[in-house]
């Protein structure tokens, strides 16, 4: 305190000078238009630059939250599109302006891939959603590029997904242009292609056709992209095509996925079981 007083005594006039100049400049900037404009412009140049840098840095730290929110947003959009597509497919003679929430059949839960394999004979990925988020065994998993796999086991916070690159994976796929359908299996060689078997002999197949999910199972809704036909062949004694499908979705580079909850799954399984009982 004594030092402060000494300082003021010694440099008092200089401090007063600075104080008066600050007051003057404050008055100049506040009450004179042109100087005020120049001041604002100059400080904007400076603070704008600084703000930009700070924003960039804080953006970087916020990326995870932004990613998550975008993922949720994507899930919502995907949900709307898929449900609309499914609904209009099932009710072709009617047109609907918008979907009622009671009509929504599929819900999408966004998840992050925490672990994955794609070079083994049986490949799995781990997602960071478990039964806490009401994930159940048998739910389908897709990414933004296409199909990923089916949930095989669930823990509290995680679930294990049997990918389409699995020796036991059987997924119903259809050719988009004509709806002929078969079963997708993995030939255990190339992580970027699967084989469509049991495609009827009379189906029209051509290289480049898009293969989508058929929607016959409740696991995947109708119309999710799988891949394009790269090659096809038929043995003379067989009655079905064997079609090579190049996957849209490169599982090795996928980081996020959406788990599909079907609201009508139980009902559908129930009625299908009744049918098989009678047989």
């Amino acid at each position: 305190m004594r030092n402060l007083l000494l300082l003021i005594l010694k440099y008092g006039s200089t401090l007063l000078f600075i104080l008066l100049e600050v007051i003057c400049f404050y008055i100049i900037i506040s009450f004179n238009q042109s100087q005020g404009e120049i001041w604002k412009h100059s400080t904007n140049l400076l603070t704008g630059n600084i703000n930009q840098r700070v924003q960039n840095t804080s953006d970087y730290f916020a990326l995870e939250a932004i990613n998550d929110s975008l993922l949720t947003e994507n899930a919502k959009l995907l949900e709307a599109i898929i449900n609309y597509r499914v609904f209009s497919k099932e009710n072709e003679f009617q047109t609907y302006e918008n979907l009622d929430s009671t009509l929504i059949e599929y819900n999408f839960v966004p998840a992050r891939i925490t672990n994955k394999t794609f070079n083994n004979r049986n490949n799995y990925i781990t997602l960071n959603k478990g039964y806490q988020d009401s994930i159940k065994i048998g739910m389908g998993v897709v990414s933004s590029h296409g199909i990923v796999g089916i949930v095989r086991s669930v823990s509290k916070n995680y679930c294990l997904v049997m990918t389409i690159l699995h020796s036991q994976s059987r997924i119903s796929g259809a050719i988009k242009s004509n709806d002929f359908h078969g079963t997708l299996v993995w030939d255990e060689l190339d992580p970027q292609s699967v084989t469509l078997i049991n495609l009827p002999k009379h189906a029209e197949v051509s290289v480049g056709d898009t293969v989508i999910t058929s929607g016959f199972s409740t696991v995947f809704p109708y119309g999710i992209d799988i891949g394009t036909i790269s090659d096809y062949s038929i043995e003379s004694n067989e009655d079905a095509f064997e079609v090579d499908v190049k996957l849209f979705n490169d599982i090795s580079s996928t980081t996020h996925a959406y788990i599909i909850k079907s609201n009508k799954q139980d009902e559908k399984i129930e009625i299908e079981l009744e049918g098989s009982d009678e047989l």
């Binding site: 008092g12 006039s13 007063l16 000078f17 008066l20 100049e21 007051i23 003057c24 400049f25 404050y26 008055i27 100049i28 506040s30 009450f31 004179n32 100087q35």
Partner: peptide
């Protein structure tokens, strides 16, 4: 010196009132 500075401020501000140049003369005279 403090009196001198304040004198400059007062004279400057007085001129500024008539010149409608709020603070410009004052800062120069200080």
């Amino acid at each position: 010196k403090p009196v001198l500075l304040i004198a400059g401020f007062v004279m400057g501000m007085s001129v500024d009132f008539f010149y409608d140049s709020h603070g410009v003369h004052a800062s120069a005279l200080v």
